[in-house]
Design a protein around this nucleic acid. Structure first.
Lengths: 213, 213
DNA sequence: TAGATTGTTAATCGATTAACAATC
DNA sequence: TAGATTGTTAATCGATTAACAATC
């Protein structure tokens, strides 16, 4: 069978993690199947969109019966690449301060935290769960030794580009930018922006819009 | 002049915080004007998109000269609603653990943190900066007394809906869901999803796509 | 003025929705 | 079979891009 993933449209890919979360949720309640209509309601979509989205996956529903939750969950996990364990590091007090809770969440999702780093000498040496917060200069070695895939950046915006450059030079190929800075990187590097401040500003605007309706 | 904001398309609104961050960045370097082309490069867009986006704003460029950074920044801040100070609370170890750094970032952006809450009795009573982490039961009172606008949720996914229900009942009208849970709320409530796990899963997929190109 | 970039129109591209035949 | 929901096609809707006249 041809590799369908080749051309899944971006909006669909962006919805996959939400589908995945919902399916996982349903499975916790021991549900076996689910209708496109119900998934749509849970995520605020139309059932048409849901079925269109799933048509990009190698997982067919049962006419009149909906989709098998377990199969669908597995298929989406595959497409997202969650079956391959990912190594991660995180830099900046925005994440090191919450090291323990972050660590737990990630471990639950098949991500392995390999190191916390800080630019701030005051927090270097502190423990956060099992890991000790290290100086940023130790980053390249940790990345190389552990073959780290992803770097989470939560420093001050003005320091973001520097940290990201260092990560890329060390061999990291995916970056989660929790900063409000717009950063640059070569084509081959995947970057995702998801800063709290950016999202609060956006939320602020949505709230104004809501008022008018 | 008619209120242009009425119908700014959502994709444009979603880009505004990034424009805003870039303009602020430029202003720090004492730049006075900027070309659509340069903004486009910084954010990974085309100059055409940038000009189209700005056409929705009440802020015209100078033919042959580009845009006045200060004016543009102010206009975007207005549209986002950043001129009105927003009161915020945050629930869950995902945020209370990093209370101090979160607090600073928010204050820099005109958001006022009014309280941290936890579902975990172990962390209740701990100080995080100026504020003491409170029991979730104290939430309604704090929200009402301070007229809190926005709630940040960073609890375990299974607890998210409960916390959000409580926030809404207390009078909050905007929610930043840092959880992977798909949550429900009445139409009048604005919700934005921006969980780290969701974004890591998405990033994981983008990295696979990158490999193929 | 000449040069440059904006603002805007029109064309392209792609996503979402509606509708219904296929099918269990 | 009848009932129900899927999978898919076609239609609609909207966003992005290209191109160029307007203009400082």
């Amino acid at each position: 069978m041809a590799n369908k993933q080749r051309d899944i449209p971006m909006p669909v890919i962006e919805r996959l993690p939400r589908y995945f979360a919902h399916l996982r949720h349903l499975r916790q309640y021991h549900r076996k199947t689910v209708l496109s209509h119900n998934i749509a309601r849970a995520l605020g979509l139309t059932s048409s969109t849901v079925r269109q989205d799933f048509s990009h996956l190698d997982c067919r529903g049962m006419f009149g019966q909906g989709y098998k939750i377990e199969d669908l969950e597995k298929t989406i996990a595959d497409v997202l690449g969650l079956n391959v364990d990912k190594k991660i590091i995180a830099v900046g007090s925005g994440v090191t301060d919450r090291g323990l809770s972050l660590n737990e969440t990630l471990a639950d999702n098949g991500f392995t935290m390999c190191g916390f780093f800080s630019l701030d000498s005051k927090s270097i040496g502190k423990k956060t769960g099992e890991l000790t917060i290290q100086d940023i200069n130790a980053l390249p070695e940790v990345v190389k030794e552990n073959q780290v895939d992803i770097g989470i950046v939560a420093v001050k915006p003005c320091a973001a580009q520097g940290v990201i450059d260092k990560m890329i030079l060390s061999g990291i190929s995916g970056i989660l930018n929790l900063t409000s800075a717009n950063v640059c990187a070569p084509q081959r590097i995947s970057i995702l922006n998801a800063g709290v401040t950016i999202n609060l500003q956006l939320l602020s605007c949505l709230m104004k819009e809501c008022l008018r309706e």
